[in-house]
Design a protein around this nucleic acid. Structure first.
Lengths: 214, 214
DNA sequence: GTCTATAAGGTGATAGAC
DNA sequence: GTCTATCACCTTATAGAC
């Protein structure tokens, strides 16, 4: 809360830089372990092994396992933006192209997809530490998609209820396809099915005018 | 494997009937606990408390926690059919009406929905005991839906790839909507959004001819 | 900042009495 | 069929040395 520890403006000690780096190492390792094993089955000990320290070291940096999870979730969003080289979310029809592109990218990184799929579903269990985070995340996504859909539908005005439902459906089919794909990568074409689903919803709302090619 | 313990044809002792009943009690309790807490967080001790016995009693009936999970998953399917009073799965367009009706029913039983949503996503974690079961289940569902879609599209022939993808999408949006709905029941209208999504895919495949009303 | 040691508690599974 | 008792193990978290 206070800045008692802050060094003179503009200067960051090598010590602090190393500490930040260590936190990042831990976050990356935790994302991998939580993704592969789930939050509950993934242990601090496993994560610590990946980083090359003991679990006490992790608790020194993050305080508790719950807190580590929340930081992992925040970190995941940033990593997503970096890899897509996107500085701000696109608007209107462009957003749906972006979603199809994301699906294509996701098909090349099962680890990250798994972390998201496992943790989001696990978060609906009673008293899960990530529950509020995911509730807010989904609410935010629905708002963004509903807004983009409204833009794409300019002239039709499908009604608030319909826009909201369509936004939920697009998010839902992307997430649901990821689970099926993770279980059987040969049987499900993640990018193709995602594009088909999104375009079906777009066509339904616009009468067949809007198409996302990715 | 052998029938060494089978009594004379047509006769079942009261002892055996009580044992079967006990197993059912355990399965119901396990479905509730695994649904609320996930497989990993849910413990045999919690389940035993609900039934009114100790966890050793559960292991007597099911052998191991993993085996109990698999039996719960099998049991869930049967319970579904009973509650919908369906003896066989409908075909063609009727199947999609059935899916919308199922969504409407599901909106009245978050516990069951949660057990399915949590366990299916948890199953994608490494070495999860339910993994093969869910892989087979999704494969079976995709086959059934693709077949029904082919029927509905009679005349258009959208191509195998397209049918399979559409089948995946319909299953995916239903599952994904459940997760969003579980996290925020006021923000998501499960039945309405499910109907919208299914009809969007149907319209996309049939050119707007087929509609599922539920 | 990282370690070792340990606390405090939960877990699934087994053995054997009744 | 259910119990009690126990095993062997794992977990998160804390305390304090270095």
């Amino acid at each position: 809360m206070t800045d008692s520890g802050t060094p003179p403006m503009g200067k960051v000690s090598a010590r602090q830089r190393r500490s930040v780096q260590r936190r990042m190492d831990i976050l990356r390792a935790a994302m991998g372990i939580f993704g592969r094993r789930g939050y509950m089955r993934g242990s601090l000990i496993e994560i610590a092994e990946v980083v090359g320290i003991t679990h006490a070291g992790i608790l020194h940096h993050f305080g508790s396992k719950d807190e580590l999870l929340l930081e992992v979730l925040r970190y995941r969003d940033e990593a997503d933006f970096e890899e897509l080289a996107v500085e701000r979310l696109p608007e209107g029809l462009e957003l749906f192209d972006h979603l199809v592109r994301t699906a294509r990218l996701n098909a090349t990184r099962p680890g990250i997809v798994q972390s998201y799929a496992v943790l989001s579903a696990e978060s609906v269990t009673d008293d899960h530490p990530g529950q509020e985070w995911f509730r807010n995340r989904f609410a935010g996504l629905r708002r963004i998609l509903a807004e983009a859909l409204r833009e794409v539908c300019a002239g039709h005005e499908p009604g608030e209820e319909r826009l909201d439902a369509a936004a939920s459906v697009i998010i839902a089919l992307m997430d649901g396809l990821q689970v099926q794909w993770l279980l059987d990568r040969e049987a499900v074409d993640l990018a193709y099915a995602t594009a088909l689903g999104i375009n079906a919803v777009l066509a339904d709302l616009t009468g067949g005018k809007a198409v996302a090619t990715g």
